[in-house]
Design a protein around this nucleic acid. Structure first.
Lengths: 346, 346
DNA sequence: CTCGACTATGGAAGCGCTTCCATAATGACT
DNA sequence: AGTCATTATGGAAGCGCTTCCATAGTCGAG
């Protein structure tokens, strides 16, 4: 088609051109475009034919201004590269694209201050809704978002006090459950490896969950917490520290799989038998977790699915339907693998 | 501030309100906002004071329509989650955010058809520029992008025939160089493991680079290519196939680190000594590549840096400055590690 | 003191769309 | 035939901004 080359040039064909060619009013073209019921079938067909003949592409910026509805959703995650948070965005975009909604993305680098800046910037673009990672935000961020009067979803964790709606899983419950499971498998002294920098609600709740498990029921013991960098080498450091410690630790529960894999490799380097001498568990179920040797016990969350869920809730909200709940639990699953002791066969 | 709660509500304070309060015209407020020179300092101060007093936030949608410049850049990558392409976006957003430019993102899932759909959708939002991954696109995608009359950057590979501008590195040269290096280290029979599905220009060029090395100079040998899934288990499959093969392969050059790490772990599982019995090399330098045992020889590209570079070129172009070149090479580095033979000490 | 060049400013027009309102046309029912 | 809903449609107003144009004000040179 020769008109293709003119198709989507800035300032190309406008709705008025379509209207003129189809011998209808601009309003009618708009009604066809937006699926209004009150258009005669013949008119609709004529308009659609003209649109395709001229290669008309609506200007969504103008629509956004006129309709006070941009079809854009703002999303902020801590980091975009190689991160489980990107998986959430992947799921979101998949669903949203099918509905003509676009995602604008920013990364806060685990900084509340940065997050606040991005929120302010993004709000000026009048998104129809907002997704932010986690439940820890500066006071001003909360205020900005509440005042914006658009749907806001916080994700990747649960809280009883969301700004608007929260979609996620309980990091607390997952960490508690995993710790209790380790104890039930016969691990006597379980230490928790948490993150030194870039602390956030998810990591914090994992720690709290671990602590809760330590005080739970029959098997109480003092909590033992190691802090290190959230990286492969940080995990290795934690193993080194453990082996030098006077405590007789027989299991390390890492707050992230990245650290856990680093720890696992360090054990291999030092010839420590996992799980016999030292058991290792992680959190996140990275793709590598099921491939390392031994395979890694961890907590799995369907993050792409979570992103899709978030998208669907957001779409509902944008269309004026209420959210099914302001606290949506997508759950988690403990993946018990070879890096921790198995239950005895009875 | 009590006005905070009214700050960025849809349909809140407009430029006219600021103008009225500051006793100036709307045009003057706009000039202050956009840094025009022709504003008296006292006027500017008064306007700025009013803006901050009222908590005015410009509506960037309206600005986009009026100025025919949205301050939005569209980006398409194959997948968003756990992907090196996300690192590019990370770098881009970092730079662009400082300049008030926002990124809208989509994922094509390695499908040209999907890419085409997203390009069409995104163009309707009138981005100021476009980033697409790779250099393989459908004919229509190329047409749409050329016709859009906005800057387009293709990334992550180099081509002599970019739509507009290409920023990347030569996958061909990197694969060729790595293969030649392996040969120079004494590896006799080097097979290349390529990807079965989701083929793309980067993977294709790596294969071509390997083939070129096979025909290079003194050490020519027939190319040997294995196809498998681009995953940890796919890499393991490749190792299994190699060991059963009648060929006496002593080195596997995997087209991606994901497969290479999978292969490495399979060797470990089977008790194959790396690099003595079988050498392994990858491509991408994933974070894990320097942590696995043995550490993985691979090709490293600074993808965050590439994203920043792309952002800077895009910013130049948006501001009407020409691109320094329509083919910008960001280079690569061979990381020679323990999974391949070392040069003999002379 | 006068004139011209330049700066600062207000205000209108217009960006491309949606949506409301008024009106015309249609058809069902007295 | 006349009335009243109901549906289809054109067109104007308006979304909140930028930018152009006209005008008023300022200042230096002659």
């Amino acid at each position: 088609m020769s008109n293709l080359s003119q198709e989507i040039v800035k300032g190309a064909i406008r709705i008025a051109d379509v209207a003129r060619h189809a011998k209808v009013g601009a309003g009618t073209v708009s009604r066809v475009l937006n699926g209004s019921q009150n258009v005669a079938p013949e008119t609709r067909d004529r308009v659609l034919a003209t649109i395709s003949k001229l290669g008309y592409v609506p200007n969504l910026v103008a629509r956004g201004l006129a309709a006070n509805r941009t079809g854009v959703i703002a999303a902020i995650i801590p980091v975009i590269g190689y991160s489980q948070h990107s998986e959430v965005i992947q799921g979101m975009t998949e669903v949203l694209h099918e509905h003509g909604v676009t995602v604008m993305i920013g990364s806060s680098g685990y900084s509340q201050e940065m997050e606040e800046k991005i929120v302010a910037t993004f709000l000026a673009r009048r998104p129809d809704a907002f997704y932010v990672t986690g439940t820890w935000h500066s006071q001003k961020t909360r205020k900005l978002l509440s005042a914006s009067s658009i749907p806001v979803i916080e994700g990747s964790n649960l809280t009883d006090d969301p700004i608007d709606t929260v979609v996620g899983y309980s990091n607390f419950a997952a960490a508690r459950e995993l710790t209790l499971m380790l104890a039930s498998r016969g691990h006597q002294r379980i230490a928790h490896v948490t993150v030194k920098r870039d602390l956030n609600d998810r990591i914090g709740d994992r720690l709290t969950g671990y602590r809760a498990a330590c005080n739970d029921g029959e098997n109480t013991q003092p909590a033992l917490v190691i802090e290190c960098e959230n990286s492969f080498s940080g995990g290795a450091d934690a193993v080194a520290w453990t082996l030098e410690s006077s405590d007789t630790i027989d299991a390390l529960f890492f707050a992230t799989d990245v650290m856990a894999v680093g720890g696992l490799l360090e054990c291999q380097r030092r010839g420590i038998a996992v799980p016999k001498q030292l058991a290792i568990a992680g959190f996140d179920d990275l793709p590598i977790a099921s491939s390392v040797i031994p395979t890694l016990t961890t907590v799995q969350v369907d993050r792409v699915g979570m992103g899709r869920k978030i998208a669907n809730v957001l779409l509902q909200r944008i269309n004026g339907e209420p959210s099914p709940s302001n606290r949506i639990d997508v759950g988690f699953q403990i993946r018990e693998r070879d890096s921790t002791l198995k239950p005895r066969l009875v």
